[in-house]
């Protein structure tokens, strides 16, 4: 879909590659309103995560013994919790933790998964067999069950939650990188580089990685959405971010005993999760659609 436009643009303004690209991007955004919405919300979420102080109305740790469990009002938009803390400000500050934990986890999975996948696919043989089986085992277990078990066995903490989520999503990147490496290794130019004696590391980094990076990017987006959900689940179960530190999941954990009494403690953090995951999914879904069509398999 994108390519004919690109050639049009190129013909119109051959001397301004950057402007041409910007135009192409603008055209894609105009064609895909859902993508635009997704990017917009993601951007706002990112701003909240970077500058929570700007958005928050209270200190997230400030307790107010005189105003516990108050419903939403003009003073406390999302109400207050059992200790009289402002739920809105806690949700705002929780954004940073939630996004950071999910982001670092996916980064870990991307790094480990794609490195192992490239090695496995490029070299094949015994290493490939061993890594492949191991990844299959991890892949076949339900994500949440595995994350709960890992985080549980290692002990509840942010670091261990990151490890658990990272391990769960490593096989996804492994698979993408491995199949990409296998396909690319068979290409004539890669074989030629091998024949003229280029070093393996150079071939993998210079020739194979750039060709799987688009797929890895789509996978990163998709996994990031799931990682936010997984982090929230772990923290909700008390296996991730620990109270009193706010994260979306840990606020929900605190609100859980008061669900019927103080629903706002559960409603708003959940909506925040929904909104952020949805925005990432909107981007991921569109990317996948476009990628699939360009591959001719959609």
């Amino acid at each position: 879909m994108g390519s004919p436009h690109r050639t049009d643009e190129a013909r119109l303004e051959p001397t301004h590659p950057i402007r041409t690209r910007l135009r192409a991007v603008r055209r894609v955004l105009a064609e895909e309103p859902l993508l635009t919405i997704g990017i917009l919300i993601s951007f706002i979420m990112l701003l909240i995560a970077i500058f929570p102080e700007f958005f928050a109305t209270y200190d997230p740790r400030d307790t107010d013994a005189l105003a516990p469990l108050q419903g939403p009002s003009t003073a406390h938009w999302f109400g207050t919790d059992t200790l009289g803390r402002d739920v809105y400000s806690r949700v705002i500050h929780g954004t940073r933790t939630s996004i950071a934990v999910s982001g670092i986890s996916v980064g870990f999975a991307l790094l480990v998964g794609s490195t192992l996948g490239l090695i496995s696919g490029y070299f094949g043989g015994f290493v490939d067999q061993l890594l492949g089986r191991l990844m299959d085992v991890v892949f076949s277990l339900p994500a949440l069950l595995l994350a709960v078990a890992i985080a549980g066995v290692l002990g509840p903490s942010v670091r261990n939650a990151i490890i658990a989520i990272g391990v769960v999503y490593t096989p996804h990147f492994f698979r993408v990188a491995r199949s990409g490496a296998i396909t690319m290794s068979a290409r004539p130019f890669v074989m030629a580089s091998r024949l003229i004696g280029a070093r393996h590391r150079r071939i993998v980094i210079r020739h194979i990685l750039p060709n799987v990076s688009a797929l890895l990017m789509v996978q990163t987006t998709v996994s990031f959405a799931y990682a936010i959900l997984l982090e929230a689940s772990l923290s909700f179960l008390g296996l991730g971010v620990q109270p009193p530190n706010p994260s979306w999941g840990s606020i929900l954990n605190e609100g859980r005993p008061f669900l019927q009494l103080a629903g706002w403690m559960s409603i708003f953090p959940g909506l925040m999760i929904l909104l952020s995951v949805l925005s990432v999914n909107l981007v991921g879904d569109t990317l996948r659609d476009r990628w699939d069509t360009s591959q001719g398999s959609g």
Binding site: A225, L229, A232, S233, F236, L252, R256, L259, Q260, G263, S266, I267, G270, I273, L274, V277, L278, N281, L282, D285
Partner: peptide, 20 residues
């Protein structure tokens, strides 16, 4: 996409809330 983006446990909580 919405259904995909809802945390399962939160959906459970909301159902409990609504039904209670």
């Amino acid at each position: 996409l919405l259904a995909l983006s809802v945390p399962v446990f939160w959906m459970g909580s909301m159902l409990i809330l609504v039904f209670s």
